[in-house]
Design a protein around this nucleic acid. Structure first.
Length: 271
DNA sequence: ATTGTGGCCTGCCCGC
DNA sequence: TGCGGGCAGGCCACAA
């Protein structure tokens, strides 16, 4: 059940669960042909891409599939691969419809001035990436291999490799998309809270038992929060504010900056 | 190579 | 009622 806290206006942050929903919705576009590209915001185009270059590269090509690796959404065509990143506030409109709806927080309004990238399709339809804060981006032929294994499919062995020898905090390792791809701040706080692990403990210091707890919590959180409706529906979410109490044991939560991110954790049961 | 820090960007909340 | 400051966080450049 989603926790709704009046006054909390955490925006809908696209972590892997939201990007996966975008992917599922975009699958409906497979088979259509790109007839025009609209990229009005040069900032949004990465790695030297320009509006005219994107148009030249994509026009007349057919969409053949959609893949996801972590938070990176990949459009396969019979020409180039297009990579879409959503940053913190990016949303995808598929034929004018927002696939991620019912989000409890954040602005519901939309604004055409936030449309950073669009594809016009034949015989009909469109794809639009809307991003108020412009922290996302679009690039051609993204390097997918710099990303670690996807968090939804990570194996015990891969998790062990991702954490091995890490001297930084556990949370920073889980946020590092090179190690494991897909987890953002909210999901990591929820996972570590459920696993009973202190986000500040060294990533490389986990024994087999702790790694097992972590992997189980990761899988369970991803499955449950997806069923509930997204990354912001965790049990910790409602308490993730100054003065919040641990929903498990009532202890005042600790608020710290770890891995450069605002971090809430329970000093009593996260060790 | 690994780890840490700051900046990008802008909507929104809060206090005055 | 308006305004300024701080905050949010994914990602990247850069420093140590």
């Amino acid at each position: 059940m989603a926790v709704v806290v009046p006054g909390d206006h955490t925006p809908p942050v696209p972590e892997l669960l939201e990007v996966e929903r975008y992917r599922q919705a975009a699958l409906g576009l497979v088979g259509r042909t790109i007839v025009d590209v609209d990229a009005p915001d040069a900032w949004f185009l990465k790695r030297g891409l320009t509006d005219s270059a994107a148009r030249a590269a994509l026009t007349d090509h057919r969409i053949e599939g959609w893949r996801r690796r972590g938070k990176l959404l990949l459009m396969d065509t019979d020409g180039p691969v297009l990579g879409l990143r959503f940053g913190m506030t990016g949303r995808l409109l598929v034929d004018g419809v927002l696939p991620v709806e019912g989000l409890e927080y954040g602005p519901r309004r939309t604004d055409v001035s936030w449309h950073r990238f669009g594809l016009r399709l034949a015989p009909a339809g469109s794809l639009v990436l809307e991003d108020a804060r412009r922290l996302g981006g679009v690039e051609l032929g993204p390097d997918e291999d710099v990303l670690g294994p996807d968090a939804l499919a990570v194996t015990s062995r891969q998790l062990g490799q991702a954490l091995a020898g890490g001297k930084g905090p556990l949370k920073a390792a889980l946020l590092d998309q090179h190690r494991i791809a897909g987890l953002g701040n909210l999901l990591v706080d929820e996972i570590l809270w459920r696993a009973g692990l202190d986000p500040a403990r060294p990533a490389g210091g986990l024994d087999g038992r702790a790694r097992g707890s972590l992997l189980r919590a990761m899988r369970r959180v991803l499955r449950e929060l997806d069923e509930r409706g997204g990354s912001h529906t965790g049990d910790l979410q409602g308490a993730r504010l100054p003065g919040g109490l641990c929903p498990r044991d009532g202890t005042p939560l600790e608020r710290r900056t770890i891995g450069g991110r605002t971090t809430y954790s329970c000093p009593a049961h996260q060790r």
